[in-house]
Design a binder for these strands. Sequence first.
DNA 1: AATGAATGAGCGTTCATTCAT
DNA 2: CATGAATGAACGCTCATTCAT
Lengths: 203, 203, 203, 203
Amino acid sequence: MVQYKKEKIKENIDQAALTVFAKKGYRGTKISDIAKEAGISVGNIYRYYKSKDDIFYTVVPENFAESIRSLLVEKVSAIKEKKFEFIEDNNEFWLLNNEFIRFIVKNRERILIIFHNNKGTKYENAKEEAVYFIVRTVKNCYRVQYDQFVDVNKDDFAMKIIYENLIHMTLRILEEAKTVEEVMKHLKSINVYHMFGITGLLK
Amino acid sequence: MVQYKKEKIKENIDQAALTVFAKKGYRGTKISDIAKEAGISVGNIYRYYKSKDDIFYTVVPENFAESIRSLLVEKVSAIKEKKFEFIEDNNEFWLLNNEFIRFIVKNRERILIIFHNNKGTKYENAKEEAVYFIVRTVKNCYRVQYDQFVDVNKDDFAMKIIYENLIHMTLRILEEAKTVEEVMKHLKSINVYHMFGITGLLK
Amino acid sequence: MVQYKKEKIKENIDQAALTVFAKKGYRGTKISDIAKEAGISVGNIYRYYKSKDDIFYTVVPENFAESIRSLLVEKVSAIKEKKFEFIEDNNEFWLLNNEFIRFIVKNRERILIIFHNNKGTKYENAKEEAVYFIVRTVKNCYRVQYDQFVDVNKDDFAMKIIYENLIHMTLRILEEAKTVEEVMKHLKSINVYHMFGITGLLK
Amino acid sequence: MVQYKKEKIKENIDQAALTVFAKKGYRGTKISDIAKEAGISVGNIYRYYKSKDDIFYTVVPENFAESIRSLLVEKVSAIKEKKFEFIEDNNEFWLLNNEFIRFIVKNRERILIIFHNNKGTKYENAKEEAVYFIVRTVKNCYRVQYDQFVDVNKDDFAMKIIYENLIHMTLRILEEAKTVEEVMKHLKSINVYHMFGITGLLK
DNA sequence: AATGAATGAGCGTTCATTCAT
DNA sequence: CATGAATGAACGCTCATTCAT
């Protein structure tokens, strides 16, 4: 029972920390903000965590960041198997499957923190690294068109920017859309946009 | 000579401030960071500026932010006059003219600060406002297709995200490309990408 | 209990602030002086007050300064009603009534700060203004003698000095005498001195 | 010639220092204030003086403070020889002789600094000490009346206050009157006031 | 020798962390 | 255990003092 209560408080802190970190960023977040959000005292937080860093890397652990990276690898790799026609009539396209969406919606704060509000943390390069991997995968997937494009335009960097912003758009959707359905709808729109855009560009 | 030297130091501080503010944001920047970057002492900065705010709003003045806004208005409004065919064979398309590019390249840090690293400054809503305006203009430009799309998909938000990211991509290019030529090349790519994407989406 | 403690600390700070401000003046007072006098840490003061100014104008509020001014108006105006004979055999003379003395003794530091140690505060002109008012009142009271004296001696300034120093003597008494009785006794002496002096001068 | 010039600059600094110290007090005075007043550069001041303290105790030397004290001793002691009748028809009374007035007018800033604007300096107790001496002298002079008064009223402190304020009034006159004549005129008034006051009190 | 730009110690203030209750 | 008051290190800024020219 005591154990239960203790666990409950920890969860409150965790959720409060996620909320506040996602809203104000690491540096902009005061311990007192988290305490207020969690409905407990400042001092009590230190019964559960030994520092601001400890809270941060517990609620947004490095292995979660790696999971996201792996998931991205898996999802992006899956593109190879898909055909372009999927875009318009198939919801299974790219990232758009319920399981995945549910996952990112459930972990929206964590993801936003890792890729968006990461000033002062280890994740400052997270977005860059994710993009690097995605672009590499896309290269392999659309090798012919991609190489041709890059060869002709010498613009590997444009690809990087474009995929970085595909991530960015996804994050923005997570930031404002709260339900799986909403997120799904917006993601569909930006994926159509992206597929037409990237296909047109590589043509 | 003394005057020259003094002017030189001020320029050093300005450049150092731009560099550090663009990298660490307003709040993340310590006066000592700027001093170190400028190669002078902390106290000496206060011979040239009377506060951190003074430095910030001198190197990134509000009327510059307004210039950018006006320029965006002008540029985006110009879309109305253009036809889609311009995309592929005409460099005059959208933002792509030398004068404009040279301007944004010259002012890259300033622009990055206003739209990217603006926490704790008056510019916190700059990106949102710019996007709001652009979307409104685009609505008028592509009224029929736009209304149809939003009507069918109820996804005004996707449009907002897409244009926000058009800006974001431009900023990312500015962040990494240093020469007018590079910026121009990358901008062309992402504009082709965007035009195909938006046209495909609204179809 | 906690509430009690908190209130106690605030009172400690207030008293410490009054003591130190009265001794060293506003500018000469460091937050660390107040902290030391109050027996607490520097940072802790900021749990109770948000700035040095906040401390100052809380312990010496502007409306207190106005009360003093009003009280002086009232007391000095009362001179008109009194006759000179009161001097020697009547304690009701001028400022000398228990209620008033008790008030100024209770608020000794505050009064000293307002009229004596006011560099860098809103009260820099408090003494000058009080003197101006008193001289004006006295002029009306002793109009004939006063005009004659000033006319003959062209020495309005001497009157200003004399009343300024009547205030000054009162302040000095407050500075060193701690009890109502002591203050009363000394005030009586200086009032006798003053009445003989001013009467002799105007004769 | 160079020596002459150097001496001239030193005098400028001295005069500037006196002016500014008298106006703003020791702590309120910046080296740059003195430099500006002297019409030279900040750095140059350090060719003539090695610190702010050095300037201060050069322009207001401790032996000058002692001279003033001695002069007061001499002047106050002279009271013994005078009779009360001097008050009204004799300008030689007490401090009122040309030589003395000319001296204090000439050294007005120094005197004001020692007795008035002495926060943060060795002279913080100068006024108190001067008063102590004067009161002691007066005690001897008017021994009979004084002892009687103090005996009856137990108010040694009132005497202290009264003489302190005689000094204070003199200082205020020095502060605002610039010519020997003016100072003389005002001093006469306050001396009449004082003699009537003290005589009345001791009666 | 003169200038005024440069330095850094110190004060006011904030906030992560500790501790008395 | 929980609380929130207390602490002190660190940042923004000022100004006495030093130094390059």
